[in-house]
Amino acid sequence: VEKLELDPLIKHPLQNRWCLWFFKNDKSKDWADNLRQITSFDTVEDFWAVYNHIQSAGKLASGCDYNLFKDDIKPMWEDERNKTGGRWLASFDKRGGKGIDVDKLWLETVLCLIGEGFDEESDVVNGCVVNVRGKGNKLSVWIGDYKRDEVVLKIGRRFKERLGLPPRFQIAFEAHQDTIVKRGSSAKSRFTI
């Protein structure tokens, strides 16, 4: 069985087609112009071909992001499927993020999404983002509906578990509509776990 699964002629289909986007912060351009689609894939083999071809997240310049979203969803609040959504956010500031391997955590996040690791809740998961910032990297999982508390919490617990974060490290859930109207640098958290 194992041998058959590794047959190089058979590609393993994913449940969803995923699109990888790259954001580079160029202040002379509009936000949306800095966001570019790289490619999409819908098999395990094609995912690795993409992953091994691109710069690893940890080597990106500060201000860059990778966004991995289901193919029909744009990585922005304005998209119909994100409008009433939110994100689970893991922020690694300089102090708390010491020794954190952003490449490893980003890969774990991506594998969890493309492998439908959120079980029945996977349908509510729209995508994931890594923000590379000098003051501290951020990882997030975007969810399509912030009002379904139980679903939101299940996804958050799984995300934290898959990242292997210690119990005292908290991740926070923010509704996009709160992020849009935020004052200062952080939006109100609806949950922390």
């Binding site: 994913l14 395990v44 690795w48 898959r162």
Partner: peptide
């Protein structure tokens, strides 16, 4: 059914980069 793959399964397809 849903095409679900755990991390171990997915990782075995990672080409050897060493």
């Amino acid at each position: 059914g849903k095409k679900q793959y755990d991390r171990t399964f997915l990782l075995q397809f990672q080409p050897d980069c060493t």
